[in-house]
Every structure is written in structure tokens, then in C-alpha cells.
Design a protein around this nucleic acid. Structure first.
Lengths: 192, 192
DNA sequence: CATAAATATTGACCGTGGTCATATTGCAAG
DNA sequence: CTTGCAATATGACCACGGTCAATATTTATG
């Protein structure tokens, strides 16, 4: 018989996520240790892996939660659309782990813990905006909005990745600004 | 005094790469174990890490060597340019590890073991081709060839990633074909 | 050739992610 | 209540990447 999920189970899972999220805030995602999470959550290590297939899936869910709040809503024009990418770009470049997880779960690993859903939502939202801008004649009509949105996401990842690459510039801030410019250049050339 | 690198050192390094490359051919990149590599190469584990900062750097070098032979040369027209992307796409989707390493080293980790150089070469080569095609009026003139090439690379990564994502389609072959179509759609919309 | 210094190699050791047989807890039926 | 079973939790254990003080080898120099 298929019995429903017990309360304590989702409580445990939530506590793990909450604890991990809190720890990630002051140690960074890269500093997360399962042992430490488990200890502070008051459960055994095995319990962790009963709720998450591996550590990366928990991290992916943390990233997904962060991303979920950053999906842009409205965009009266192209400049507004570009501005809406800023928080996402900031998230992706804030910690190297974020991009790592995104690259791994937005593609290869698939079926992440909610991350794929968030990304789909994001792309759908962007497609909606781009479609509206197409209607206003502010965005080129040729590829359909969904394709445009997918391309924007690809550029977001690429630009964020280049922000981390020490080759382009030694200084971290300079790299980030260069990557920001790259993103604007790519996206505006893509959608207009 | 800065003494030159000893012969045995580059021999050891080469043997490690050769052995790892051979093992990767029949076990896949994901199946590589440093212990196994080291054993078959006849060196101690510490020696491995004296030559490579970590396992991923060795894998990155293997991937770089594979990629180096796939850099497209000529492209009489847009269709030819698209066709030149095919081997790269095939490499990226052949093993999930390849994409993982690319995503990690083309961006975040930076200063990979030659991978970054190969990628720069690739982008430069593509920029050359796109510039020529611009001259022929076959590619849109607006973004400079370097930007166009960078965008193409971003799309390559994105399409390859989507080929691995189980969400799009359950069947592996169908996914790969869908991703191939996506790549063609994105790139042709990007460069024309 | 002797010797010292730089280079290269070694392998025991460690941290951490992940597994699994076992124990415990919650729930529903008798 | 209690009995039986599925869901959940446990923690000793393992695999594997990576470290480092010690050792061996090469090379430059007097």
C-alpha cells in the first residue's frame, strides 16, 4: 500500500535545507560540509542521503530558492529587459558554486531538485516579456520568443562564466564589469 | 637558480596522460580513477598530484586534446559553418563529463590545463570564419566577429547541455536530435 | 669526483561524500 | 491494546580524491 509521506519526514527535509541555507550564508556554498549540516540539524548522515540523492542536489535546491525570487517580471523596453537580468547575473557571479551547479543541473545532470523547474519558469517568463516587446516592435520578430529566451539564458551563463575566468583580467571587479558588458553586448545584439 | 624541467618529469607526465587517455577510451571519462591511472602508469599517487593540481585538470587536458583536432577550418557559407560545429557538438554530447569539464574550466575554474587555450583558439578560428562570411554578406554585419563567435560558443554549450537534460525527452537519441535542431536554430538566428 | 642544492618521487595518511544493513518510529487493521 | 508493515532514521563503514614530510634522483659547481 502506498502510504503518504509522514510529517516528520518533510520536517527533517526542511530543517536540513534551512540549516544548510543558513550555513551557506556565512560560509559560502563551497564551504558546506554534509557532516556539519547534519550535526547542526540534529540528524544522522544517512538521513541526509535519504532526503537528497547527493550533496549537490541540496545545493541545487538552495540555488533554486535564491533564483526563484529573482525572476524578472515586467520590461517596458529593451533596457528594462537588460536591467532585469542584473540580479540573476549578480547571483551567478556571487559564488563560483552557483554557476557550477547551474551548469551541471541546467543541463547534464538534469532533474535537479527544483532547479530545472525554476529555470523553465525563468525562460518562460523571459519569453513572455520578449514576446510582448516583439509586439511593440522593440525586439526583432524573427526567432520566436521561446528561442530568444533560451538564447538569453545561454548568454547569461556564458557571461557569468567569463566573469570567473582569471584569463580575461586579474582583478575580480574588472572581470565582473567586463562580463557585464559582454552580457549586454551579446543580449542586445541577440534580441534587436 | 632556475633549473630546467628534467626529462623524466615530462616523461612521467606524458605517461600519465597517455595511460589516462587510453583508459578513458574504454571506461569513459567518468570511470577514471586516479588510483587506477597511477597503478597502470607505474608511479605513486603523490606523483600524479605533483604533475596535475587535481584530477579534473588531467581530464581537462584530455578533453582539450580531443577538441584541438576538431577546430573547424573553412566555411564557404553559413551551412558550412553550421556543419563545422557538428564534431564539437558530438564531442560535447558524447560524454556528460566533457560538458561538465568545459563548463567548469571554460569559465569558473579558469586556467585549465590547456583547455582555455584551445577554447580561445576555437573562438578565434570561428571569429575568422564569421568575419570572412561577413565580408561575403552572408553573415549579418552588426556585432563584430569576435562577439559573434563568443555567442556561438555559448550556444554550443547550451545546446549540448540540453541534450543531456532528461526533461526535454526520455529517449537519448531524440534528445540529441532536438538539441541539434536547437543549436542550428539558435546559431542561424544569431549570425544571420 | 665530491658535494650541495634543486627537482622529482614516494606512500602512509586524512577529509569528505556516499552506502547499507540494522534499528526505530508511525500508522492502520484486527 | 497489539500486532504487522511501511516509512524513516541511524552510524559504522567504504571509496576516492588529495596532502605532505621524508626519500631518491638529477644537475650544477668547486
Amino acid at each position: 500500500m502506498a502510504r503518504p509521506v509522514q510529517q516528520r519526514s518533510i520536517q527533517t527535509r526542511d530543517r536540513l535545507l534551512q540549516v544548510a541555507g543558513a550555513m551557506a550564508l556565512d560560509q559560502g556554498l563551497a564551504g558546506l560540509r554534509t557532516e556539519a549540516i547534519v550535526e547542526r540539524a540534529g540528524v544522522a548522515k544517512g538521513t541526509f542521503f535519504a532526503h537528497f540523492p547527493d550533496k549537490d542536489h541540496l545545493v541545487a535546491e538552495l540555488v533554486a530558492r535564491r533564483m526563484a525570487g529573482l525572476i524578472p517580471t515586467d520590461a517596458p523596453n529593451v533596457a528594462g529587459f537588460l536591467a532585469g537580468l542584473e540580479p540573476l547575473f549578480a547571483l551567478m557571479t556571487a559564488e563560483a558554486e552557483v554557476l557550477d551547479i547551474l551548469a551541471r543541473f541546467a543541463g547534464p545532470a538534469g532533474q535537479a531538485a527544483g532547479l530545472d523547474v525554476v529555470i523553465c519558469d525563468l525562460i518562460a517568463a523571459q519569453a513572455g516579456q520578449l514576446g510582448a516587446l516583439q509586439g511593440l516592435g522593440l525586439v526583432r520578430p524573427s526567432p520566436d520568443p521561446a528561442t530568444l529566451a533560451e538564447g538569453v539564458f545561454a548568454f547569461l551563463l556564458h557571461a557569468a562564466a567569463s566573469a570567473q575566468c582569471p584569463i580575461s583580467a586579474p582583478d575580480r571587479l574588472a572581470r565582473q564589469q567586463a562580463a557585464r558588458d559582454l552580457l549586454a553586448r551579446l543580449v542586445s545584439a541577440w534580441i534587436t
